[in-house]
Structure formats: structure tokens, C-alpha cells
Simulated assay, not measured.
Amino acid sequence: MARLFGGDQIEADTNKVVGTYGYMSPEYVVDGRFSLKSDVFSFGVLVLEIISGKKNRGFSHPDHCHNLLGHAWKLWTEERALEILDNMSDRPYSVSEVLRCIHVGLLCVQQKPEDRPNMSSVVLMLGSENSLPDPKQPGFFTERNMPAVDSSSGNHESSSINDLTISELYAR
């Protein structure tokens, strides 16, 4: 994305949206507007993915149809943010540091670019113990329409996204 910018530009309009779904900022996906705050959004998604051990794209939860950002926001507003953690029960961690990372991640994925911190502020937030502003609702906080399962068919096939395929290449 950096190639879109010239010299001292901090913002650009594009004709074609390119990037990885789940990491692109709302203003870029909807309006084709890319800025330095678009990278901040992507960083926030990565922070929440690392903490949860889950990907934003394809995330599912049995209680709702939010993506990972929506799930993190829901837990944050219900004061249950630590429930997003990857199964870390066997590894020691600092509760205050994890909560701070979640907080910073949510600040980075806010809907409006002007509400997101810049990356130098993110670095300071992660390295200090100063109080942080309250995050606002993340971008793409909508419930997805999931296809309904036909319970009358009796055909309930189990599936997992953890399947592994190994391909071996042999020279001729």
C-alpha cells in the first residue's frame, strides 16, 4: 500500500481496492480512501488475532454471528475481555498487559480513522501504564447472515477448519 503514496502524502484515493479481507479498514473498503490510519486498523486486527489465537476472517462463535472484532467489542463492553484469550491457562501472563493489548487493539480498529491513534501513539500506549481513552465501536461491527441449517433433513455432517493436507512433490 505504501506505493500508493507519493513523497509527503498521508492519504490517497484509489480506483481499485486491493488487500486482504478482514484486515482492510472500513474507509478503504467502502470509499477506496487509504491513509496512514488504514495501517493502524490492520495492526489492531493483528493484535486481536494474536491475543485470541483466532483469525478475524472466518471467525465464528456459537452465541452470535460477529466477526472477531465484534466479538472482542462485545466482550469488552460486557467487561469480560479476558474471555477472548487463546487457551493460555498453561502459560503465565500478566492480566494487566493482556487487557492493555486488547484495549489498544480496540482503539486501532475504531470505525472512524480520526478516532484511531497513529502508530507512534500505539507504541507509546503499549509501552506505558498511562490511562487510555475508551474505545468506540469497531469498524465492520455487524452481525453476518449465516446460512440457516436445515434441521429437518437429519443430515448433520461435522466439519472442522483444522484439516491438514500435505502435498509431496516428486521430480520426474
Rank of each mutant, 00 (worst) to 15 (best):
G58P: 03
Q111A: 03
Q111H: 13
V149W: 02
L4Y: 09
A12L: 05
C101K: 00
T77V: 11
S96W: 00
P26N: 03
E168H: 10
F43N: 03
E168L: 13
R144V: 10
V30C: 06
R91Q: 13
G58F: 01
I10D: 08
G139F: 07
T14R: 15
S128M: 02
G44M: 05
N15W: 10
I102Q: 01
L48G: 00
V40E: 04
S151W: 12
L69S: 08
H71D: 05
R80D: 03
M24A: 03
R91L: 09
S158W: 14
E27Q: 14
E11N: 11
L126Y: 01
S96Q: 14
Y28V: 09
G53P: 07
T20M: 02
L69Q: 09
S128T: 15
Q110G: 00
S42C: 00
M24K: 09
R91P: 02
L107S: 02
K54D: 07
R80S: 15
D31C: 08
E129H: 12
S158T: 12
N67I: 00
L68A: 04
L106I: 06
D39E: 08
H66D: 06
S131A: 11
S121L: 09
R100S: 03
K37G: 01
D150A: 06
P92A: 12
W73T: 04
N145L: 12
T77F: 07
Y28K: 10
S152D: 09
A81L: 04
H156K: 14
E114D: 11
I51L: 03
V123G: 02
P117D: 08
S89T: 15
S94E: 08
M88G: 12
K55G: 01
L69V: 01
L36H: 04
